[in-house]
Design a binder for these strands. Structure first.
Ligand SMILES: [Mn+2]
Ligand SMILES: [Mn+2]
Ligand SMILES: [Zn+2]
Ligand SMILES: [Zn+2]
Lengths: 146, 146
DNA sequence: TTCGTAGTTGCAAAGATTTGCATAAACTTA
DNA sequence: TAAGTTTATGCAAATCTTTGCAACTACGAA
């Protein structure tokens, strides 16, 4: 079965209607290597669906997030970006507040933490795709700017 | 020494210029019990500084964040909100994706995690004011919506 | 297959946040 | 205290994101 078809099926299984917009937006995000912005999703998807509207992209990524099929990444300042949620490679991100560089953090690093939070709070944590801010190895050696 | 004066002094110590806008915006945030939006900061601060511009509020909260004097809280959908960073009460937040309710998570819960991340990555994590999404105790019992 | 209904979309307008630029104010130095 | 230098502010415009509403479409029931 094709990649797009399998994704559409998952969408259906989770109770979401399968529309051309959702299918194509999902495939557009899936075929990108990195996290991409709404504008980039829009440009990519519009090639296959010319009438597509940017508002639909925003509403769709919201739905896809709800379906647990994509991750969102918001790095300070820059617009929100999206990526396919790959259960094979759960991870979070470290973003350097100085130079903007991004590092991945494997899921094991945060799993124990998430489980403990669930125990002590009876809150169910979403399969976490955290973004932690801070300073990378290089930037933390320089003096602070104002 | 007055609360506002002490805050202004801190700002100066950290290498930021002390302007009327920064001082009043900082006090406005400090005097609020909860996290408030840029619009609310603007309305509050403008009472004491009528010429204040909303763009200045945005630029100022960015600076105050850089100075480590305020926290930012972004709960899915709603606009960003701000609060005074109180070293006496470090915490993070759990936001329910269904009902929007917010719970606090004491700092001890995440300290060990942050330290471990710092060790394994040589990345310096900002004094963390994390926001974790998930389902609260009540909402996690109901079936999922689409 | 057809129909009815609830959920989606496009469009336009509103709301939220950022940015360029000229002016004004803060801090440094003399 | 009086420049001179650097940074912050106001304003307007740009960019990013959300929303109301009427038309459209997916999909379960008949
Ligand atoms: Mn990611
Ligand atoms: Mn808080
Ligand atoms: Zn860096
Ligand atoms: Zn809830």
């Amino acid at each position: 079965m094709s990649c797009g078809k399998r994704l559409a099926e998952q969408l259906h299984e989770r109770g979401y209607r399968v529309t051309a917009q959702r299918t194509i937006i999902l495939e557009t995000i899936a075929h990108m290597e990195n996290h991409i912005s709404a504008q980039q999703v829009y440009e990519g998807a519009r090639e296959r669906l010319p009438g597509l509207n940017l508002a639909t992209v925003y509403r769709t990524v919201e739905s896809l997030k709800g379906a647990g099929m994509i991750n969102m990444l918001s790095t300070g300042g820059e617009p929100m970006r999206f990526s396919l949620c790959d259960p094979e490679h759960p991870h979070s991100h470290l973003v350097c507040r100085e130079c903007g560089s991004i590092f991945e953090l494997e899921a094991e690093e945060i799993e124990a933490f998430a489980r403990r939070v669930e125990e002590t709070t009876s809150f169910r944590i979403d399969s976490v795709h955290l973004t932690l801010e801070g300073l990378c190895q290089i930037c933390k050696q320089k003096p602070a700017a104002s």
